[in-house]
Structures are given as structure tokens and as C-alpha cells.
Design a protein around this nucleic acid. Structure first.
Lengths: 341, 341
DNA sequence: GTGCGGAATGTTAGCGCTCACACTCGTGGC
DNA sequence: GCCACGAGTGTGAGCGCTAACATTCCGCAC
């Protein structure tokens, strides 16, 4: 119970107080905390004891002020509730802590240029040493690059592989994997339920879908427009159900695949007997869709870790080593089979 | 391009530089930034111009050091990837920003006493003014209370309504709502697929399930043990499918309901014709399960906002007004119907 | 014209830390 | 016996800000 009336919380013990108690100078305490090497073992223990007794914690604001380094990385993401972004955030945090950095996470409730600006602004106020932006809209990537802040910005979604200061997953390869699986089962062509046109990921997955056909000398099936939501998957599903030509669909993500399955059931089309469906992301629920969903798994946490390591490299002013994009893998379940007949 | 060789990033413009440029004292600049009231309009504009020209940003570390207030709230959560926690985090952040606070979010990759301790420690190092803990394990709530840090800790899951320094959703009422719906449709009793015993939420939902039966003078149906995962829902579903007595199941969350549906389909039991199913949470996908899931909706973002407001109240040393828990609502979809016959 | 009072602005002293340097020992070489 | 040296420690300044107090300015009453 701190004295409730006081305007300012009472100050906690300072380095000077620890020093006095241990009978040394404040600088020696500082040395114990930073590079113990130069302090005699006996003194070190005495200081440590004093720290313990006083419950001392180093004042981070004073430290930042004196060193001009915040040891803080900012991260902004939209759609924190989605599987991908939240896993990325986790990866960034973990890797950050390992490297002695704190991570300030700002979640956008929705995407808009203004909110993004705002978030970056706020992070700048906190003097972050680098910012990781995990917002997949194409516009976001462009906005981000236009900012030219004084700190490095690492983009982690919505960018082409090989872009400087970025980390990525090879979406195209993943899509090709999924579509290839369908074609190799004997489907003549595969329809694609695409994500929104302004997402780079959607474009990349679409490219993989086309490529898989081309590599086999086949013509791609019809393309449907979606927006990642199950509702859009459902709408597309109604269309698919009406066209007996379509025997296989590659959905741009698992949520749309879910809506698609729902519509197919509604119309009495059997999966995979009448129509095969494959998704993308491998959300934890995908294995329990009806039927369980064949989909593409990506290691988002690893993506986050890489993003952080790129950011730290930039902070240290190192030459950037461009990492190969992460390769997704295909998880085959019950929603895909060879076409009938 | 900062000079790559320098050990420390070059300092950004200081208040003193702004002052010089505007031809005033640094204190006047400070006044413009804080309580503009006492500064002549003309001077104010001159200072603002100087700030603009120099691209000045107030150094937050110096400010914190001088005021002894960090304007930062810490939040720790496990299962950031789940719908509930991520929405809560969003609510806390939004409300925090509105109140001029930054929020430091620490996501635990899994729950353990050690990791929780660690996270709280890290936040303490950042001198947060309060901590919001959104970790639902019963153990977490206990650990949290045992910490007695120097800052207020607000618990936001895993606590009974009315607990001091907490915000909550009335889980029991939500469960009673869901089960009541089933009973009022004419089901003799409802089976319950419960969450893990060490989650307070699981216990509360279970209590609501029992209460709904008692209020109607009915005996509750069988109780099954789950762990929130779709896999556990699937296991339970196989059991349910084998018992024709069970005509309705209340699942502790939507994920388990999904697994349950999956098992029911697998065994050829029709939903809702043979078995009605209701979930809890109303995740965005629930409307597209097959069949679409009747479930209980909770306003997690609001929960987060309340938690923050409780935290700020405590920081200001106000007497705590205990808020009524948030009332969930029932969303009826296709997975529930009257029993056959 | 003198003085008074509030509005506007300036001055000074820290906040708790790190950095650069200064100092004090004891030890060893000559 | 003196100096050089390095290990171990201390001293002082200063990071950029706010808080408290000091000062100046100006218009107005007398």
C-alpha cells in the first residue's frame, strides 16, 4: 500500500543507495551489473547482497538516457487475432528477449494508413531501435517504405522474397505444392479462390496456382474472388457447387476453405468425392473441419524470429544477409482425393 | 544512413535546441508540450514551428526519469493465438492509448509458473505502472496474487466475479443461457464437454450447465472431460456418438465443439437431427462450421477495456468500483434443434 | 510617475544512470 | 629504492527532461 495521497510514487532505491550500503562507489555497482569482470569477487558479492537486501532494480529510464539506447524493438501488426500474425508476434518476442530486447507490440484493430502511421509514431516516441511491420496489405508495405524513419523497418509480410530488410515465406512454392498435389491426383484443372487483390500474399499464392498448371502443360481452372473471410468462401462455394466441371478448389486460406466446405455441404456436394478442397495456413482447427482439410503449413514463429534477427542486424549496422524464404510444407488430410471416374 | 561506425546512434534534437531555434528557454518549450495554457499564442506558434523544422520528438526516457512515471501498462497473456486473449489484448491497448498510456504486451508461448514470473519481472524492469494478467489457469491467478509487487495487478481471466482488481465476463450466465436454450427446445438433459479442471472458466461454465438443469428440475446429462482442443472434442464426440441417450451437448468452447461435430459426422450421427451441439466463444469461424454453430458470444474487447480502466483507477489510487461482469449473449444457428420424436 | 500584480518567461537543481578519466594500491624489473 | 604497470576502485560530468522558484514585462490604478 503506497501512501495513497502522494502525487508521485515514492522512488525506489537507487544505485547510490546500494553503493552506500555495500560501502563502495556507485560506479562499482554499475560495473557489477554490467561487466562484472573488473570487480573483485569479494566486492561483487557484497554489492549483490546489498542489491538483494534493498530489492534494487536498475532504473531503465536513466540507463536509456545515459546510453542513448532503448533496447526496445517495436512491432506493429493488424489482425492480431489471426493465426499468422499472432504466431509471428510470438516469434519476434521470443527472439527479442533472447537478445536482450524488449518488444513493444502494437495491434491495429483494422488496417488504415492513418492507424499505421499512428502506430509507427507511437513506437518512435518510445525510441525503439527498429520496427517490425507485419501488416500484409500491399498498401502497408508501400506506406512503410515511404516513411524513412531514422530507425530500420523490417517488413515481414506483403513483400516479395529478396526485398531488403524483410523476412518471408515462399507463398508461391506453397501454393504450387498444394495445386500440384491436386493435379497429380488426376484433376484436369484446379479452381482458385483468391484472397483480396491488394494483398501481396494473395498474389503470390495465385502465381503458384498458375505455375503448377503451367509446369504440367495444363490450363488453370476458374478463378474466384474472396477476401479471406469464411463468408466469402461460402459465396464462392455456392458458385462452385453449381458447376460440375469443377472437381478441385485451391482456397487462398483455411478460413475461406471452411466457408467453401459449408456451402458445398449445403448444396449436397460431397467432399472429396465430388469436389476436392485444399486450404492454406494450417490453422489448429483445420484437422477437424469436415472433412479434415488438406492444407499448407507455414512456420510463422520462425518467420517472426527471422524478422527480429534481420532487425537486429540492421541495428548493428551489419551488411544484410538475405535469407532464403521459408519453405512451407503440405499436410494431406481427407478433403482431397482423385476425381471420380 | 547513420554513420555506421559510431557506437551510439547520433542524438536527436533536444529540447534545448528547439528552444534556441525558437529564441526561448527550454522551459517554455516544455510548457508548450505539456500545458500550453501559460504560453502566449505567438510564442507557442514559434516553438511549434521550431519543433516541426527540427523534427523534434520529446525524449521519453528523460521525461520518465524526471517525472518518475512511465506511462506504461504491462500486460501478460498466454495463448495469444486464441481468439479471446488476442481480443482482450486489443481492448487493453486501445483503451490504454486513449488514456495516454503505452501497453507492453508479453505473450507466453505456454503457461508455466516460471515463464509467468519471468514476464512479470521483465515488465517490472520496464517500470510499468500496473500489470494486467490475462492468463486463465487457476494456478496463474494464485501465483499472481502471491507476487505482491509494488504495482497493482489486474486479473482478467480465471477469477470469480467481484474479485478485487479484476474484470470478468459472467461465464456461468452464458452457460446457463446456452443450456437453457437446449432444454427449452425439449431436450431431457444436456451433456457437457468441460474444459480442463484447472481453469476457472471451465468450472464456471460447468456451474452454469448444472444450474440450468436445476432451475428446471432436471438432472444434468453426462459430463465429459476436454482440454479446449478440437482433438479432445473429437474424442468426446466418439463417446457421444455411441450413446443414443445423448441428444444435446454443451461444449465448453467452440474448438471442442468443432472436434465434436467432426466425430459425430464420422459416426454418421446427424446434427442437429440426432444430436444438438452448442459451443462457447463465438469465434469468427463458428458461423461456418457444419452445421453452423449455436454458441455464446462474449465481448472480449470490452473486457480488455474494463481491465485497463480498473488498472488505471488503481494507479490513481482511487477506490475501486467493482463492475458488474459482462453478460454474454446467445447466438442461435443451425446446430441446435428440438429432439426428434 | 510610482507601484502593484498577474501574465509570461527564465534559471537552477536534480532524476539515476554511464562514460571517461583519475586515482590508489600492490607487484615486479632494474 | 625507484619507477612502471595493471588490477581495482573512485570522481565528476552530463544525458534531456520537469518542478520549483525567480525574474521580467506590461498595463493599470492611484
Amino acid at each position: 500500500m503506497a501512501d495513497a495521497g502522494s502525487r508521485r510514487a515514492s522512488r525506489s532505491p537507487s544505485m547510490a543507495q546500494v553503493a552506500q550500503r555495500a560501502g563502495v562507489s556507485h560506479q562499482t555497482v554499475s560495473r557489477v551489473l554490467n561487466d562484472a569482470s573488473l570487480v573483485k569477487e569479494e566486492t561483487r558479492l557484497r554489492v549483490l547482497a546489498a542489491i538483494e537486501e534493498l530489492g534494487y532494480r536498475r532504473n531503465f529510464a536513466a540507463r536509456i538516457l545515459a546510453t542513448n539506447r532503448s533496447r526496445r524493438i517495436g512491432m506493429v501488426t493488424a489482425h492480431l487475432a489471426l493465426h499468422g500474425p499472432s504466431m509471428i508476434a510470438l516469434g519476434v518476442q521470443e527472439a527479442g528477449y533472447e537478445a536482450g530486447y524488449d518488444v513493444s507490440l502494437v495491434g491495429l484493430s483494422e488496417f488504415s494508413a492513418e492507424l499505421l502511421d499512428n502506430a509507427v509514431d507511437r513506437l518512435s516516441d518510445q525510441a525503439v531501435e527498429a520496427i517490425v511491420v507485419a501488416v500484409a496489405h500491399r498498401e502497408a508495405a508501400e506506406l512503410t517504405r515511404a516513411l524513412h524513419l531514422s530507425v530500420p523497418i523490417v517488413t515481414v509480410q506483403g513483400v516479395a522474397a529478396g526485398t531488403p530488410l524483410s523476412a518471408s515465406i515462399d507463398q508461391e512454392a506453397g501454393a504450387a505444392l498444394a495445386v500440384g498435389h491436386l493435379l497429380d491426383l488426376g484433376h484436369r484443372h484446379v479452381a482458385h479462390l483468391a484472397g483480396p487483390a491488394d494483398w501481396v500474399e494473395a498474389e503470390q499464392r495465385r502465381a503458384g496456382w498458375r505455375r503448377a498448371h503451367e509446369e504440367r502443360g495444363l490450363l488453370p481452372g476458374p478463378e474466384l474472388a474472396g477476401d479471406w473471410s469464411p463468408a466469402s468462401g461460402h459465396r464462392a462455394g455456392l458458385l462452385v457447387a453449381g458447376d460440375p466441371q469443377v472437381t478441385a478448389v485451391f482456397a487462398g486460406n483455411d478460413s475461406m476453405a471452411l466457408g467453401l466446405l459449408n456451402a458445398l455441404h449445403e448444396r449436397g456436394r460431397r467432399v472429396p468425392d465430388d469436389v476436392s478442397v485444399v486450404g492454406f495456413d494450417d490453422v489448429p482447427e483445420a484437422a477437424y473441419f469436415w472433412p479434415s482439410l488438406t492444407t499448407v503449413s507455414q512456420d510463422f514463429a520462425e518467420l517472426g524470429r527471422r524478422a527480429l534477427s534481420v532487425a537486429l542486424g540492421a541495428v548493428r549496422g551489419e551488411d544484410e544477409t538475405v535469407l532464403d524464404p521459408i519453405r512451407p510444407t503440405l499436410t494431406v488430410r481427407r478433403s482431397t482425393a482423385a476425381p471420380r471416374g
